[in-house]
Design a protein around this nucleic acid. Sequence first.
DNA 1: CATAATTGGAGAGTAGAACTATCCGTCAGT
DNA 2: ACTGACGGATAGTTCTACTCTCCAATTATG
Lengths: 215, 215
Amino acid sequence: MRIGDLSRETGVSVASIKYYLREGLLPPGERTSPNQARYDEAHVRRLRLIRALVDVGGLSIAGTRTVLAAVEDPHVSLHDALGTAQAAVMTRTEPVEDDAAARAEQAVAALIERRGWITNERNPGWRTAVDVLATLERLGGEKVAGLLDVYAEAMEAVAPHEVEAVVVDEDRERSVERMVVGIVLGGALMTALRGMAEASVSAHRSGQAAADRAG
Amino acid sequence: MRIGDLSRETGVSVASIKYYLREGLLPPGERTSPNQARYDEAHVRRLRLIRALVDVGGLSIAGTRTVLAAVEDPHVSLHDALGTAQAAVMTRTEPVEDDAAARAEQAVAALIERRGWITNERNPGWRTAVDVLATLERLGGEKVAGLLDVYAEAMEAVAPHEVEAVVVDEDRERSVERMVVGIVLGGALMTALRGMAEASVSAHRSGQAAADRAG
DNA sequence: CATAATTGGAGAGTAGAACTATCCGTCAGT
DNA sequence: ACTGACGGATAGTTCTACTCTCCAATTATG
């Protein structure tokens, strides 16, 4: 399989494939001569994975590279790769040090304590949660911050199933790959369903309001 | 309050404020003379809102503009603004027409039917959900697609509280603003908590595995 | 087997996003 | 009166994610 076939198979332009090769997202093909290379099914799968993470998951090329490096590195455990994938889907901001941030930090620590979660401030979610809560306080959106436990409970319900879905019966690389897909696309799916669920509730209420007005 | 004060108050550079004014994210100040303007607290709040949506929520400037236009337009209902905010947080892709897409479409329709949700294919979540499911099938990640109902249930648990949190006792613009913040930052918060919840479950399992090995 | 098309690799070029810098003619504070 | 913003407009910058162009070496084709 040469680069043109790879392109035809996946719908990704030859130029883009070359770009991904250069950027190290796609491993080089097996050289058949000093300036000729052959690609295989693994490259097709990898290319599809890249497109999924970038197009559907919204990851950057740099983020995708980091995640794929974790997929490939046999020294990276499933648990560590989980953190890498999570970090890739979260928006990073340089932290501010103020009262709101301090209170947010407290709130997150209290939540984790209350929930009995085994995690710490090195988890990418920790910093993000603190940032979001601090921002909410600065904006005066305490109402949403009050939903902290509602969100936590919902995520507690989801997490075991997600982790369960990544069975470790195949080889490590496949498992990590599956997990990465689960984290990134699962998040996108959840956001989509959240949108519909909220629209549904909102529609119910609008309908109710209309009924109230009519009645 | 002049532009320099606005900058000092919010920590946003004068150049960026001018940029936001140009891009229509920030309404122009009240002119006090042909080339002098005055800004007020509303501008400070708006600027903080912009930074929150962009930095913490990860919205683009274009997406932020669309959302803010909905906030400002008195003809846009709370329910419609909800859709606008949701659309802004979801990754858009040009849809592919294949078997996987057709099956995904079916799966989403069935889910909505099963759940009794009041929503339709015009909801931004619909297309996103179909895209994600189709992508998952193409990647062979059926396991995650099997979590569809788990995700749906979790979002059903969250949605009423989120909608509830946006009380409509204040003026419309404030309500819409609150809702936008809720959708965008609430989503970021949920992702962060999901990360910690999963890490916790994964740590439990690693611990269990270690215990198994030891015992 | 001559020749046309492809390939791999490197480098430069491009488009869009989000600023940032520079001017310049006012205008406000001292 | 003069120094330092201010507003407005235009141009320039940086970063990202490609895309284009070359070119010598292969590979496919009539």
